[in-house]
Structure formats: structure tokens, C-alpha cells
């Protein structure tokens, strides 16, 4: 599904990603772990298409297509979803309006029927119920006045609604207490399927107790220095990043 080859990327002239190669197949969940400053968030932003990052060499192929040639909204419409580490507050835009616009943008892009406000409400209520989110949140402005936990749950709600093929989860566990973490993980696990893939970016092993990855990679200084199965995460937790990166 996703093939990253020798990816180099800079921001403001400073090289952050220094040659990343990673292949993610449908049905697989990969975890990328690493210390602060390793380039984890940069990787997720480059994949989602945020401006300000320059890819200096390498390639990213998504479903056989050059991902880097697509705008962020095209990537989203083609099934990529980035759950933000810090979801953005947007005063003046109601959550329900935002999500309906996003939902219909994707429907339109795929040549499928757009939904009206009533139909959308039905759709979203099924998801909020599953995720234990109060409907009242839909009336509030996007992420404005949300607690850290609410913001992350809102990300998972959007993801459940948009049903992406490739989930990019950037530090989804940060700022969550254990109950919120379980709900978020549960929401993500519901989306796991043989057709979908995921890339979980995390600093701590904690989230991986709830979302069991198929592969774990250690990212340090812009490179993947080690790859393995889920036991690698536990090893990391025990030994720390310094030792693993040096290995």
C-alpha cells in the first residue's frame, strides 16, 4: 500500500529525514518509535502533505501512485488520514459542519452521493455512540475548549467517519489518561481490517499494549536504525532509546 524509498526531507534548510525506507502492506500495522527530535512527526507531516517540508530525494508510492505529487486534500480523499498530535482549534467552525464538509468532499472526489445534514447526523451518531462521545461536542467549534482527551477522541471519531485506508497516528496516546487511551485504541482497533494499514508514531510503548503492531521500527536521527516485531517495543521500553540507537 505504501512504499517509502530513501526519503530525505528538510525544513527550513535543515535535514530532518535522512533516508527512510519502509514498506507497509494492506492489513499491517507498523509502529515507529523514537526519541524526541528523531523525525517522527516530520515523517507523518511529509506523508500527509503539510507545506514547509521539502523532499530533497527519495520517493513515496501510495497504491502505486506518486504520493508526493498530490495535494493534502487529494491524499485524504484517496484514503490517507493523519490523526494529529496536536489537533488544531478552529474557532467559528462547528464540528458537525467541518465533519460533514470533509465527508462530502471525499464522497464527491470518489463520485459517490453526498449526504445532507440529516443523513450525516445519523451516520455520525452511530460513531459517537461507539466511541462514547457526547453529541453535544458536534455543536461546538472544532477542538475549541476541548480537553486533551476530547481532542484525541475527536480525531478518532473523524477517522472512524472517513474510514481511511491508511491511518497515520501521530502520538495519539499523548495527553490521554488510561481510560481515554483505551477508548481511542478501541476505536482504532475497530478499523483494523485486511484492507487497511496503519502507521503508529509514538514515543512510549504504552499505546502498543492496546494496539498490537505487526512491525516495530526505531527511528533515530532521521533514519530507521532497527526493525522487528512487537517484542522490539518492549525491549526499547526496558533499555531506552540511547542504547538501542547506538546498537
Amino acid at each position: 500500500m505504501l512504499e517509502i524509498k530513501d526519503l530525505h526531507a528538510t525544513i527550513g534548510g535543515k535535514e530532518i529525514l535522512k533516508g527512510i525506507t519502509l514498506t507497509i502492506n494492506a492489513g499491517e500495522i507498523h509502529a515507529v518509535m523514537g526519541p524526541n527530535g528523531a523525525g517522527k512527526s516530520t515523517l507523518s507531516y511529509v506523508l500527509a502533505g503539510r507545506s514547509g517540508y521539502e523532499v530533497t530525494s527519495g520517493s513515496v508510492t501510495y497504491k502505486g501512485e506518486d504520493l508526493l505529487a498530490l495535494s493534502p486534500d487529494e491524499r485524504a480523499c484517496k484514503g490517507i488520514f493523519l490523526a494529529f498530535q496536536y489537533p488544531v482549534e478552529i474557532p467559528g467552525v462547528a464540528s458537525a459542519t467541518f465533519m460533514k464538509t470533509a465527508y462530502n468532499a471525499r464522497q464527491k472526489y470518489r463520485g459517490e452521493q453526498e449526504v445532507d445534514a440529516m443523513e450525516f447526523l445519523k451516520l455520525v451518531r452511530v460513531k459517537t455512540k461507539e466511541l462514547g462521545i457526547k453529541d453535544e461536542m458536534l455543536k461546538r467549534a472544532v477542538n475549541v475548549g476541548f480537553s486533551g482527551g476530547e481532542k484525541k477522541r475527536n480525531e478518532v471519531l473523524q477517522m472512524a467517519l472517513l474510514e481511511p485506508d491508511l491511518m497515520l497516528l501521530d502520538e495519539t496516546d499523548s495527553g490521554l489518561d488510561i481510560d481515554a487511551l483505551k477508548i481511542a485504541a478501541d476505536g482504532i482497533n475497530r478499523l483494523r481490517s485486511p484492507e487497511r494499514a496503519g502507521l503508529i508514531i509514538t514515543h512510549y510503548q504504552r499505546l502498543l499494549d492496546y494496539i498490537i503492531p505487526d512491525f516495530v521500527h526505531v527511528l533515530a536521527d532521521g533514519r530507521i536504525v532497527k526493525s522487528g516485531d512487537k517484542s522490539l517495543a518492549l525491549e526499547l521500553e526496558e533499555k531506552g532509546y540511547a542504547e538501542m540507537s547506538a546498537a
Binding site: 502533505g49 503539510r50 485524504a76 470533509a102 468532499a105 472526489y109 472517513l162
Partner: peptide
């Protein structure tokens, strides 16, 4: 706000909208 713009785009909403 560039961050807000990217957030909306990352959900499939085109830049103009």
C-alpha cells in the same frame, strides 16, 4: 492560520473551500 488550513485539507477539504 496555516495550521488550520492544513488541518482542513488533511480531512479532504480542498484549499479553496
Amino acid at each position: 492560520d496555516e495550521d488550520a488550513l492544513f488541518y482542513l485539507q488533511s480531512r479532504g477539504i480542498d484549499a479553496v473551500t
